[in-house]
Amino acid sequence: MNITRRHILILLPAAAVAWKSVLAGTPEDSPNYNMSEHWWGMLIDISKCIGCGNCVRACQTENDLPDGFFRTWVERYHRSDWHLENPEVISPDGGKEGFPSVQDDPGGEYFFVPKMCNHCADSPCTQVCPVGATFISPDGVVLIDQTYCMGCAYCVQACPYGCRYIHPTKKVADKCTLCYHRITKGLTTACCEACPTGTRQLADLKNPKDPIHEFLKTHKVQVLKPQLATGAKAFYNDLDGSVR
């Protein structure tokens, strides 16, 4: 068979495409885990939180976090009866060792609000990364490629929920991974596992059998800062209007 110029014109691009797929390699998925079948989020039921700090400690243990840095933390709000706008918020050491007791009750409402990465579907943090180090995985988890991150901290500033920090020794951005190493193995996150009251529940929004769907239908569930249209997937039940 004679190879004509026409053949070469067809073969060359085909070879280039084939070579590219060879270079890309095959993805190393966890067995029995298909990314396209999941879309992860979290349900946080404020009415159940007792502020024990179990989630904070569990997160620090599971992910070897440095002291003083938190991927999840618990805030205690004190909102006065007459003024919604300026609640008093405390979170001593992230709520890790509990909270000081309330001595003289000055009235108003006290409640705990666990905070964490909202794993936004339209996350501001991934949009500002100049090098493609942070991204939303195909199953809806916002992750950081720490070998690629150069520690510019744009994302730390961009996150409207304050969920990112620069790791003190690695000098790269760090944040909640929604325990990606656990949820891909069929386990729940460390914070959910350690939560004694069921305040936190991992939710798979693509799974039609997940109880989250019934919960969202039957409860008044909100996300934080909805006006920013971040597509936050940390759903808060019984959220007070003063929470920011």
Binding site: D29, F135, Y148
Partner: peptide
């Protein structure tokens, strides 16, 4: 997407 896919695994 615009990131290293191997980071996910």
């Amino acid at each position: 997407g615009h990131y290293r896919a191997a980071a996910v695994s």
